[in-house]
């Protein structure tokens, strides 16, 4: 007499077999957290050296209190895979011509009036507006381990409902600016929609919304980031990106000794 296999047991065996056979291909089909993050990085940042004009508008309690303009010259460093940026201040006129170099933790400020190059600590750099660039021009996939926390419907920067992957990012080394990041990426096209940046103490430092997606240097990229201060949500900075230009930016420019000689075309 043959023992009858209960239908439930049979089904589970079939399911196990199916998972064994199809599992890898299913996993292949669904993008990993790292792939989503890398795709989102590629949307924020062109893959070749470029310059972009950044207009920063600061608000307190909804009132505009300050505005400044800078031009950022960025390239990916071959050794680290991370962005290095030379930032040239344009407005206000008081700061015109001042430079800031960020090459990992090699941070320098150069004032053409005093000819002084001053090394900055990461904390010193966080005092200025240039540090807001860290929420934009950075390859997060290089510095963070990403985990897919699920899918959520969120309000995007244009105040529309979007379905998004929620990624949890933890720093791979203590050298990076933010210890952890929560990131929401559009499930349809991997566009970055929103991010929350945390200190090591888990304190919320900044919330960023990426919006005004437009074609720039071969891809549709966010051309405005809304940055909301974590401690004081009434303090808001809008970063508008315009005039993306592909440029030749040699690696040799990204050092202190070149700052007094930096004269971009």
């Amino acid at each position: 007499m043959t023992k009858k296999v209960p239908p439930v047991f049979m089904n589970s065996r079939v399911l196990s077999f199916a998972l064994f056979v199809l599992g890898p291909s299913l996993a292949w089909a669904a993008p990993s957290a790292k792939e989503i993050l890398a795709a989102s990085d590629a949307i924020r940042n062109p893959g070749r050296p470029f310059s972009v004009t950044v207009t920063l508008t600061e608000f307190q309690a909804g009132k505009q209190v300050d505005t400044s303009t800078l031009v950022s010259y960025s390239r990916t460093q071959p050794q680290s895979g991370q962005f290095a940026s030379l930032i040239r201040f344009v407005l206000p006129a008081r700061d015109a011509g001042k430079l800031m170099l960020k090459n990992g933790n090699d941070l320098w400020f150069y004032d053409p009036a005093s000819k002084a190059s001053v090394r900055l600590s990461p904390q010193q750099r966080l005092l200025g507006q240039a540090s807001n660039g860290d929420v934009t021009t950075v390859n997060l996939a290089k510095d963070y381990r990403a985990t897919l926390l699920g899918e959520e419907e969120i309000q995007d920067g244009e105040r529309r409902k979007r379905k998004a992957y929620k990624l949890g990012l933890t720093a791979l080394s203590p050298d990076v600016t933010y210890a952890s990041i929560d990131m929401w990426v559009d499930v349809e096209n991997n566009r970055p929609l929103k991010a929350r940046f945390f200190a090591e103490s888990s304190r919320l430092l900044k919330t960023a919304y990426y919006r005004r997606f437009q074609p720039q240097l071969g891809a549709v990229r966010p051309t405005e980031t809304v940055i909301i201060d974590g401690l004081n949500p009434q303090s808001v900075t809008l970063m508008r990106f315009s005039d993306y230009v592909a440029r030749t930016i040699p690696e040799t420019w990204m050092q202190r000794d070149f700052l007094p000689r930096f004269q971009p075309e």
Partner: peptide, 14 residues
């Protein structure tokens, strides 16, 4: 506060 922030507009580009 975040919704209010999303209503803000940038300065004209210099």
């Amino acid at each position: 506060a975040e919704t209010d922030a999303l209503l803000l507009e940038s300065s004209p580009e210099a």
